[in-house]
């Protein structure tokens, strides 16, 4: 297993956001987390790269890194874990004072100490992959939401992460711009990137995911391959949720 999570829990004050989360993910798999808002899905995603620190539980990666939260989860081991993954945000969070190209090479050059020329070459290839090579000298505010999010994906890929995290990557987009971002993500899935995403695009999640996790109230309510969770849900809450998402009226 690339990643094994057991007994993960997290509270904000009295509010228990995550309760006993258990998951396994293989290399090259795509896992989608769905569920109503407030179900803890974004918090769970943020735990994977240290934006949130769980109170309890264990995360272990295949090459031996194991973190036991709650005891003495050292800052160093959380840093090591963070460097395995890269995040794509709902609101893009591009650096507005840097051009598209500068956004993409910032991590490789400043953090990973890659040679600038090398990083630029890789960044241009990544921008070509997301269809934005000709926009490399633009500033983020000169781009549409869909374009900004594709830059966000290129910026994450430039870090050569073992795990790509997507936090509702299309939720802030106009409907006609969602497709261009999903297309890029579909390509990544085909290339066998290991991905975890939080999404409301149920149909899309069903197409590209190996596992679907349905969360509600901080628990994993249902978990399995898409054909089971989406097509033949066993739990009443999953059925209700899917019903509301697929037939809103």
């Amino acid at each position: 297993m690339f990643l094994t999570i057991s007994g993960l829990a997290k509270s904000f004050g009295d509010n228990k956001v995550l309760k006993d989360i258990n998951l396994e993910l293989d290399k090259g798999e795509v896992l989608s987390i769905i569920g109503p808002s407030g179900s803890g899905k974004t918090t769970l995603l943020r735990c994977f790269n240290g934006l949130e620190t769980p109170d309890k539980g264990r995360m272990s990666f295949e090459n031996g890194l194991t973190i036991d939260f709650g005891e003495k989860a050292s800052k160093q081991s959380i840093d090591t874990m963070r460097k395995k993954s890269a995040m794509v945000f709902q609101s893009y969070n591009l650096f507005p004072h840097k051009t598209v190209l500068e956004n993409v090479i910032e991590g490789p050059v400043i953090v990973q100490k890659e040679k600038r020329a090398n990083a630029v070459e890789r960044a241009e290839a990544l921008l070509e992959k997301v269809g934005l090579k000709e926009k490399k000298d633009f500033y983020p505010h000169q781009l549409s939401g869909g374009q900004q999010q594709r830059v966000g994906i290129a910026r994450a890929l430039a870090l050569k992460p073992e795990l790509m995290l997507f936090d509702e990557p299309t939720s802030a987009l106009d409907p006609e711009l969602i497709g261009e971002v999903l297309t890029v993500m579909k390509d990544l899935a085909k290339e066998k990137w290991t991905m975890i995403m939080v999404t409301h695009e149920i149909q899309f999640a069903g197409e590209i995911s190996d596992q679907i996790v349905f969360m509600d109230g901080g628990y994993i309510v249902e978990h399995g391959p898409p054909q089971e969770v989406l097509k033949a849900p066993k739990q009443e809450r999953t059925k209700q949720f899917l019903q509301r998402i697929l037939n809103p009226v």
């Binding site: 890269a86 969070n93 507005p96």
Partner: peptide
Amino acid sequence: GQWEAAYTIGMSRGTALRRIILPQ
């Protein structure tokens, strides 16, 4: 979100401040 984006590309607090936050 700017701090978070800086952290997720691996920056420390100091680097994030110097490269991302203070220029803005």
